[in-house]
Simulated scan of single mutants.
Amino acid sequence: MERFSFSALLGLVAAMAQGQELPRQKVLPVEIAIKIAQGAMDRCKADGYAVSVTIVDAAGHVKVQLRGDGTGPHTLEHGKRKAYTAMTFKRTSAETLKAWAAAGPIPLVEGTVAAAGGVPIRAGADVIGGIGVSGAPGGEKDEACANEGIQKVSSTLR
């Protein structure tokens, strides 16, 4: 049996590591998250809806939350769950609701919600976060506001 010296082993490890790079990951900067949230809030306000908006990053952590004037206290948590659902499943929360409903009983997945109003935030093909809007009279209206917020920064997210 052949024995390697410690220095030879270190040299072998170093040679194996050469040429390997750490994976690169796109992130959602707070400045962009604020613009998305404000864009969604502005759209809903213009439409006459008092809403709360939550942006989560790719790890599911809250990046930005805005609670509109006159909103119910539940809208912050509901919007957060919509954003988390969209980010986690990489599709709108409305699409997730449809998929769950078609599969049978809606599963209980911690932090998610079976309600429309959440949209993934993409940078190219990568999902870098999610937005959830809550408070408009219907999830489709929440989702329209979320999409408007993303649209405000679409050129930056390419």
Rank of each mutant, 00 (worst) to 15 (best):
T75D: 07
E2H: 10
A123G: 08
D57L: 09
Q18T: 15
A86W: 04
C145T: 00
C145A: 09
E77Y: 05
L66G: 12
V51I: 15
K35C: 06
Q18K: 15
A33V: 04
I128M: 10
V119K: 03
A14K: 11
H74M: 09
R3P: 02
G111S: 05
A94D: 10
L108W: 08
I150E: 09
A59H: 13
L97C: 00
L22V: 11
E2F: 07
V109A: 07
T71E: 13
E31P: 05
A59Q: 12
V113Q: 05
A50N: 13
S5Y: 11
G124T: 00
H78G: 08
K35R: 15
K45W: 07
A115D: 03
K152S: 15
K35P: 00
K152Y: 09
A14H: 08
G149F: 13
Y84R: 06
E21G: 12
G72Q: 06
Q25I: 15
H74W: 13
G19M: 13
V64T: 11
D42M: 13
M87Y: 03
M87A: 03
M1H: 05
V119I: 12
H78K: 11
V62A: 13
P137K: 14
F6H: 03
G79Q: 04
A101G: 02
A146L: 05
R43G: 03
K141V: 01
E110Y: 11
I34D: 12
K26T: 15
K80E: 08
R67M: 11
T85A: 02
V51K: 02
L10D: 14
I131V: 14
A123I: 02
V13Q: 04
G138L: 07
A50V: 15
Y49F: 14
K63N: 13
G138R: 04
I121S: 09
